[in-house]
């Protein structure tokens, strides 16, 4: 078990959100979409230029820019 942020995850890698380290509008948007601690996510893919990233969360697909993904810490296996 180790903690990484979403930017450093591989496509198809799975993990569980442990913390979202941002307040304000960005934090609010992230939480509104269901990215709260305990949520399971899977990296679905990346845009052709590697940014933004698409993840599968709670049954739908969500996109984030890498600099936004930096603020979300995820626990992954191995």
């Amino acid at each position: 078990m180790k903690r990484v942020n979403i930017r450093n995850m591989r496509v198809d890698q799975k993990g569980t959100v442990t913390s979202v380290k941002v307040g304000g509008e960005l934090g609010r948007r992230i939480r509104d979409m269901g990215l709260v601690p305990g949520t399971k996510i899977r990296i679905q893919g990346r845009a052709p230029l590697y940014d933004p990233v698409a993840l599968r969360v709670k049954g739908f697909t969500l996109t984030l820019r890498n600099n936004e993904a930096d603020l979300i810490e995820v626990e992954v296996n191995g």
Partner: peptide, 12 residues
């Protein structure tokens, strides 16, 4: 000002 978050749904 900071860019509006890109947090967006990719609808099916």
């Amino acid at each position: 000002g900071a860019s509006t978050p890109f947090v967006m749904e990719l609808p099916p």
